[in-house]
Structures are given as structure tokens and as C-alpha cells.
């Protein structure tokens, strides 16, 4: 049986109005709500992400981070709300229109999600091959070039994902995410399961790739070291709402007891973890 935490007062999500001359955000989320049965996972969540900006959303397990990213990517249908990408509401689009929008996005999954029946080079250029933008010979050459950008040698191209270490799989997944030169790249727990050194290497590759592409980056993580390395700004999600947002430099002194407890990993504080008894 689940014992809910005692209700704690939550600060309102700071959502300053944009000045009139500010360009529209790359991603705008308004009133996003998602329930799974009786559980409210996203609670009228609002979020703006400017173009060429790297936002990291932090939050505890079950706080709604993954559901948020899946809603934006079109993998989960929200119950209510709007998601605009480049000013267009993607929730009102047909499947074909949505696929066209997704073609300008890249995604690095937590566990890589590499296609284990395909060699590395086909994984990397999968999106390009699927859209017939490139022939198989050219795709192989292109994959080798992209792999070199994430620090992998050409011989890796012929291997299958099962033959790679966890760090190499993450690099290949990153190569796949950037292969189509996306405008927006999503990172789901990019350093989970990696040792600290490999985590730092992946983070620096992410920063490098995002800057080189001039892309907008949206990451979710609970690895604070990783968040500080890859974020321009950090937002915290708690009980399905964004409760704090600020520059990554302020994350150690956020002035918000929820964020402070989470960042410092303190057991006691306003966040009470739900436990099963």
C-alpha cells in the first residue's frame, strides 16, 4: 500500500512573461496534463525552451520527467494542454505532419535503444536511410564520419550493438541522435549507468555536438554533475509541475528548499519520498 507524503507547501512555478520583441520559444508547453489511472503525473505543466538553449529538467524518480519528454516527442498522448514546436501545435497535427516535425529532432534514449539487429553504421544513419535521403554506400561513409565526431574509430561501424561496451553504445546512440543534423535534441538520462569519467566524456560530447549543430537541447537527468556540465538553465519538476527554473550557475544556491534538498541529496526536507509499506 502506498503511503503518500504529507502535503508540503509548494512554491509557484516562476513563469516570467516574455518581452514583446523576444522570438517565440522553440518549444512551448502549456497546461500539459497526463494521468495514468488515478495518478496525476503531469499537472498543467508550463515550460518554454528558447532556440539554441540547453535546458536540463531535474527531478526525482516518478516526478514526471520521462512522461514530459515522451509527450513532447509524441510517444505519449497527453490528456490536456498544448505543445508548440516552432509555434505550431504538434498535438493537432496528423501523423504524417508529426513525422515531418520529428525528422528535425534527435533523441538519445537512456539505454541507447540501438537496433540490435542492425550494425552500428546502419543504426547511425537509420533516419537518413529510412527517408531515402542517402544510398547505403554513402550512408556507411557518412556513419564513419559521424562516429569520428563522437570519438569512435571506423572499425566500430561494422560491429553490432551487442559487441559494444556501455560507453560505446552511448556514443553510437549520440551519433544516431545527431546524424540528421536536428534542430532539437532530447537527452534522457544521458549518463545513467556510466562510470564518472565516461559520464564526463559523454557530457562533453553532448555539449560539443549541440554547439556545433546550433541545436536546442532538452535533457532530463538526476545526475547533478551532468546537469551542471550540459545545462544553460535548469528546471526542477516536482509532482508534475515545474517548481523552479534558473541558470545552471545558480543550481547550488537556488533559494528554493525543494531544489536545495534535491541538489544536496538530503533525506530531510520538504520532499518526502513515497514509500511502500
Amino acid at each position: 500500500m502506498s503511503a503518500p507524503a504529507p502535503a508540503a507547501p509548494m512554491p509557484a512555478a516562476p513563469m516570467p512573461a516574455a518581452p514583446a520583441d523576444t522570438p517565440p520559444p522553440k518549444i512551448r508547453v502549456r497546461g500539459l496534463t497526463k494521468r495514468f489511472g488515478p495518478k496525476l503525473v503531469l499537472d498543467a505543466l508550463d515550460l518554454d525552451l528558447p532556440a539554441r538553449h540547453s535546458l536540463v529538467v531535474i527531478g526525482g524518480s516518478g516526478s514526471g520527467k520521462s512522461v514530459l519528454i515522451k509527450c513532447i516527442l509524441g510517444l505519449i498522448e497527453p490528456d490536456e494542454g498544448a505543445i508548440e514546436i516552432d509555434g505550431r501545435n504538434v498535438l493537432a497535427m496528423s501523423r504524417e505532419e508529426r513525422e515531418a516535425v520529428n525528422a528535425h529532432m534527435g533523441m538519445l534514449f537512456q539505454a541507447g535503444a540501438l537496433f540490435d539487429s542492425l550494425p552500428v553504421w546502419e543504426n547511425v544513419c537509420f533516419g537518413l536511410l529510412a527517408k531515402n535521403e542517402i544510398g547505403r554506400c554513402a550512408a556507411r561513409e557518412k556513419a564513419v564520419e559521424i562516429l569520428s565526431r563522437v570519438g569512435l574509430t571506423p572499425d566500430v561501424a561494422a560491429l553490432y550493438p551487442a559487441e559494444l561496451s556501455g560507453g560505446m553504445q552511448k556514443r553510437v546512440a549520440l551519433a544516431r541522435a545527431i546524424a540528421a543534423q536536428p534542430d532539437i535534441i532530447f537527452f534522457d538520462e544521458p549518463t545513467t549507468g556510466l562510470d564518472p569519467i565516461m559520464g564526463a566524456i559523454i557530457d562533453s560530447l553532448i555539449v560539443d555536438c549541440v554547439r556545433r549543430l546550433g541545436a536546442t537541447a532538452f535533457s532530463i537527468t538526476h545526475d547533478m554533475a551532468s546537469a551542471k556540465r550540459i545545462a544553460d538553465s535548469v528546471a526542477m519538476i516536482f509532482k508534475g509541475k515545474i517548481i523552479w527554473r534558473g541558470p545552471s550557475a545558480e543550481i547550488d544556491h537556488p533559494g528554493n528548499p525543494y531544489v536545495e534538498q534535491f541538489v544536496k541529496g538530503q533525506k530531510d526536507g520538504p520532499i518526502q519520498m513515497e514509500v511502500r509499506r
Partner: peptide, 9 residues
Amino acid sequence: DALTTLSTN
């Protein structure tokens, strides 16, 4: 899910 994000049905 990865297929979907790569614009492949």
C-alpha cells in the same frame, strides 16, 4: 519508441 523518433512508423 526510437523508430518513432526517427520518423519511421
